[in-house]
């Protein structure tokens, strides 16, 4: 087995086993996986050359759906929460998507931001329904009807999330290699030709957009359940910015990078927040600039370069294409 494949499997094993050695890491990793799913949604859109500054909207839609379900049924059921949260985020994705896929680049990014700001202010203003700025508690749900203790639930949530992430990552990877996934990518390079193949660029982008909203929704439900509380902050623009940041950090366009980025980001945030709380966004901002200007393929790009050096060979044209960053300059 080549090193290039062995290392990711090893990393996955370390993530799976880490909580056994260091119990504190379990919650952090669960949160990181939840964010990683949402980041995957951003990564997907980057393949079409689009950046959304408002995807926290779908994260929050799903999280609040789970919270409402829990409130309505005194605790609720995890599977139902996931189904409802996913359904709600897909529905919102379709509604918002029908509008925003008419636009590209600046308008696309900013209209997404506008929609998320609208939702944020609704969450804050209609406090009699949403609990306002204090948000809503999410009680620990049952899992397929079984009530669980806290420790057992957290362990289950972590391993459940891990399996879900691996499965979803595989699906997205296959989607991106499929005919429709490749058409989705051509929105970045040549929409005119796509239309002249008889394919609607808007509908193609809409498919990807709805999927990306669903990914954010899955992440939102997991986050809500893991944290036990949802607040309007879930929909805030800083959350959206964070998702975009992690996508770029991991390696824009890389499915694995979404999760690697999320785990590293979350680990650093948890440990650095204590002494950098006031300047956290500033740190992120400088990092983002540094990555864009000096390492535009992110962590995954650095990994590939390291592997190339270890295997002592130059990338062929096909490989550079596989590792190509949607964000990279032409």
């Amino acid at each position: 087995m080549s090193l290039r494949i062995a290392v990711p499997i090893l990393l996955l094993a370390i993530v799976a086993l880490l909580p056994l050695v260091a119990p504190w890491s379990q919650v952090v990793l669960t949160l990181a996986l939840a964010k990683g799913l949402a980041v995957l949604g951003i990564v997907l859109l980057l393949h079409a050359g689009q950046v959304s500054f408002g995807h926290a909207l779908f994260f929050a839609v799903a999280a609040y759906s789970a919270a409402f379900l829990g409130e309505a049924f005194a605790g609720g059921e995890l599977v139902m929460m996931i189904v409802l949260g996913l359904g709600a985020s897909l529905f919102f994705g379709l509604m918002v998507g029908l509008f925003v896929v008419r636009y590209r680049h600046i308008f696309f990014g900013m209209l997404n931001l506008a929609f998320s700001m609208i939702f944020y202010s609704i969450l804050e203003k209609f406090y009699h329904v949403t609990g306002g700025a204090d948000g809503m508690q999410v009680a620990r749900p049952t899992v397929v009807g079984i009530e669980m203790e806290r420790a057992g639930f957290e362990t289950l949530l972590f391993y459940g999330s891990l399996v879900l992430c691996v499965a979803v990552a595989w699906c997205i990877h296959r989607f991106l290699s499929s005919p429709i996934g490749n058409m989705f990518k051509t929105i970045k390079t040549n929409e005119t030709r796509l239309e002249y193949l008889g394919i609607s660029a808007r509908q193609t982008l809409l498919v990807g957009y709805v999927v990306s909203a669903g990914l954010c929704g899955l992440g939102g439900v997991l986050m809500a359940v893991a944290q036990g509380i949802v607040t309007p902050e879930y929909a805030w623009w800083i959350r959206s910015g964070e998702l975009v940041f992690i996508a770029i950090l991991g390696g824009a366009g890389s499915v694995a990078g979404a999760f690697v980025g999320a785990i590293i980001y979350e680990a650093v945030r948890v440990n650095a927040a204590a002494f950098a709380a006031d300047v956290w966004q500033m740190v992120l901002g400088f990092f983002l600039l540094a990555i864009i200007l000096f390492a535009s393929r992110g962590l995954v790009g650095l990994y590939e370069r390291l592997m190339d050096r270890l295997e002592n060979k130059k990338p062929t044209s096909k490989e550079t294409q596989d590792g190509r960053v949607p964000g990279a300059a032409e």
């Binding site: 050359g49 600046i106 992120l284 983002l288 964000g327 300059a329």
Partner: peptide, 15 residues
Amino acid sequence: EDALQLLVTFAVFMI
């Protein structure tokens, strides 16, 4: 490309 330009000014905004 546009997406990166938008990200750069967004980073400046965060800072």
